[in-house]
């Protein structure tokens, strides 16, 4: 009895594998989030098209939808005989569902607003006059981006990266639906924790759950300290 409940006083090899998968997923997702999020946020911050609220709403959808909605549609989309699954295999990919790539795709969509919104907020606060002045002095778009936009948007970029990373680490519902719980491939920390609780390995569960709390606290503390203001978003802008 006791041996079953108190089994694994520390983290096992499988637990460590879950931590590695989680960190790998969060890192890759964050990089893609920045690559995808920067142009979207820049466009949203500068566009005057009437469809802008619609695009903003689409980006923000994962904030309000239950993860099961995304998980459900992704599962249907990833099936080998669906158009998305066919395209993926045509492009040389293995089967999409239950693969690490599937988790990356799901995580990027799921965490997109957490990256786009801080970026958009900081882009909107860039003084346009500065860019115009730089342009009159002959700085091309690339110069402007690297010597003005990037340094001035530092906070937004770090906020977007940290939030995207943290939110991916905290993901559960989507992965439960599309992951297939494969150790070393798609078994992330939150899923491993769920397994441990179901199998009464409370000791192992405590290590994971406690570790996640400390990790998230440190990361959020870092973001707040970096921003120095009370908001996760630069200069008082509240995400709407």
């Amino acid at each position: 009895m006791r041996s079953l409940i108190e089994m694994n006083s520390m983290l096992s090899a499988a637990d460590l594998a879950a931590i590695v998968v989680t960190l790998k997923l969060a890192t890759i997702t964050t990089i893609i989030l920045l690559l995808v999020g920067l142009p979207i946020a820049w466009w949203l911050a500068n566009t005057r098209v009437r469809a802008k609220p619609l695009v903003e709403a689409i980006v923000a959808l994962p904030l309000v939808l239950p993860p099961t909605v995304l998980g459900f549609y992704l599962l249907l989309a990833f099936a080998p005989d669906s158009p998305v699954g066919q395209l993926w295999q045509y492009l040389g990919g293995e089967q999409l569902a239950f693969s690490f790539s599937a988790l990356v795709i799901g995580s990027v969509i799921y965490s997109l607003p957490f990256a786009v919104q801080p970026l958009q907020a900081s882009f909107e606060q860039l003084p346009k006059s500065l860019l115009e002045a730089a342009a009159t002095m002959g700085a091309n778009g690339r110069d402007q981006f690297f010597s003005i936009i990037l340094p001035l948007s530092r906070r937004g970029i770090i906020g977007a990266a940290s939030l995207g990373f943290a939110h991916t680490v905290g993901e559960f519902g989507v992965i439960l639906m599309i992951g297939g719980n494969i150790p070393g491939e798609t078994q992330v920390l939150s899923i491993a924790l769920y397994d441990r609780v179901e199998t009464l390995q409370y000791s192992s569960a405590h290590w994971m759950a406690g570790g996640l709390i400390v990790f998230s606290l440190l990361l959020l503390g870092f973001i707040y300290r970096f921003n120095k203001t009370a908001s996760l978003y630069p200069a008082g802008r509240v995400r709407s």
Binding site: L75, L76, D81, S82, A97, F98, N181, I182
Partner: peptide
């Protein structure tokens, strides 16, 4: 692929993913 429960295992096959 290890489903969360037997219902999910069924659904993985039914949706064509397994």
């Amino acid at each position: 692929v290890r489903a969360n429960n037997i219902a999910q295992a069924f659904q993985y096959v039914d949706s064509g993913n397994a």
